[in-house]
Amino acid sequence: MSETSNPSIVPPLAKSPLRPPFPKGGWGGFPTRADIVILLLALALVPYLYIHYWGNGAHGEQARILVGGKEFARVPLYKAQRLEVPGALGVSVLEIKDGKIRFIASPCRGKQCVHSGWLGLSGEFAACLPNRISAQVVGREPRFDAINF
């Protein structure tokens, strides 16, 4: 490539190096109405995210499953899976999905545990007393405390 013979490759900035690289036609009505809308939305995003992630009723991270008063398992809620937990009467099936846990099936009569539905918030609890199985959503693990407090 020849640098000097072709005049078209001389960059335009070299001709007028002092011209400020501002947008064509100036900044034009500098904070436009849409600018203000975007700024307000961006500012509203912060409290929304804080309430969603750090507010009360925070989503739990793990589920504690007790069988007959003893801890059977502690499972993370972010991994979708199905658990089969053997109890006093038979096997109860629990499902974990999207940060929530529920009983799907239990060999008990009333099915109170199944009717409890999805549990996702820290502290929520469902139990199948005849089968002696309970599931409780617990908050963050203790190792996160140094960051949170």
Binding site: P23, W27, G28, G29, F30, P31, T32, R33, A34, D35, I36, V37, I38, L39, A42, L45
Partner: peptide, 21 residues
């Protein structure tokens, strides 16, 4: 959007906030 609908035109300020997010 600003080209199609001039009432919603964003200046450098709004564009930069949008791009940063």
């Amino acid at each position: 959007l600003g080209r199609v609908w001039p009432a919603a035109r964003l200046s450098a300020l709004g564009l930069s906030v949008l791009a940063a997010l």
